[in-house]
Design a protein around this nucleic acid. Structure first.
Lengths: 137, 137
DNA sequence: CCTTATACATAACGTGCTTTTATAAGTGCG
DNA sequence: CGCACTTATAAAAGCACGTTATGTATAAGG
């Protein structure tokens, strides 16, 4: 039995995400690019087709994205020693830095929002944070 | 004083948003389009410049978005009787339907995620939901 | 009136994605 | 070995979505 009003939680997450996105640097990378970098950071090097499937884009799109990421120094493409067809994509240090900076900007923005919340509400959010993390592992 | 780890909350929200977006219909509307439609549904008819400012895009971008929304039957543009320069944008029934369907898909997806959570975690999330809504009003 | 400000539209451009089609290289199997 | 399958690249055409710069119509105020 699900105790949470999933429709309301959905809306709240979407609205919050929109707000956090507001404060983005003007020339930010695309959502897919950011999501792919995060995935590479979280899961380690991955092959192109795997990334394409995971991100829900076509394989040519992921080829292009990987090339842009490489061009911008955010990712590297290296051959797989065990399979000559495969290209492994991995995030670079610069890529990790970019992710960290993005997180920092968003977190600062979020802190602003949080500061206008009551202590009670903040406590409720703090208490629910681990649950939220388990929800989206 | 902010009691919540805003960096962790940021990451959790981003991850959850990505997961919810996964199950999207292949030809979904853009984030800005969705956000604008939601705003129109929530706040009623608005003028173009107002929408542009609220969504953080330029006025020409909102003009184009409104035209696409109108072309797709999701919004209408009507003149303001009291000011001949102004165009009022309103969401149509089809637009509301689209929003409802999107919410339903996401909510169903979220229910799946929630169902694998402990009752305690679910209770924490349910308790924090109103605070989350106040955070992103 | 005439001028200036406001609201919106239009034009020209860049990026990122999609499909489609073609090509090439590597792997695995009968 | 030869052939099918897999993996990735490349290139073309098209649409969505954003930008800046510029144009046009209405409003507002001397």
């Amino acid at each position: 039995m699900v105790l949470v009003d999933s429709a309301r939680l959905t809306t709240a997450v979407e609205r919050l995400f929109s707000l956090l996105r507001q404060g983005n640097p003007p020339n930010d990378i695309s959502l897919t690019a950011a999501s792919t970098l995060r995935r590479l950071e979280r899961e380690g090097p991955r092959r192109l087709t795997e990334l394409a499937a995971a991100e829900g884009v076509t394989q040519p799109a992921m080829t292009q994205l990987a090339q842009r990421l490489e061009r911008d120094g955010l990712a590297e493409r290296t051959p797989d020693p065990t399979d000559g067809r495969v290209v492994l994509v991995r995030v670079t240090l610069a890529g990790r830095d970019l992710l960290a900076r993005r997180r920092e900007v968003r977190a600062a923005h979020l802190r602003d929002l949080l500061s206008s919340l009551s202590a009670d509400d903040q406590a409720l959010l703090a208490a629910a944070l681990p649950a939220l993390e388990r929800l989206a592992p």
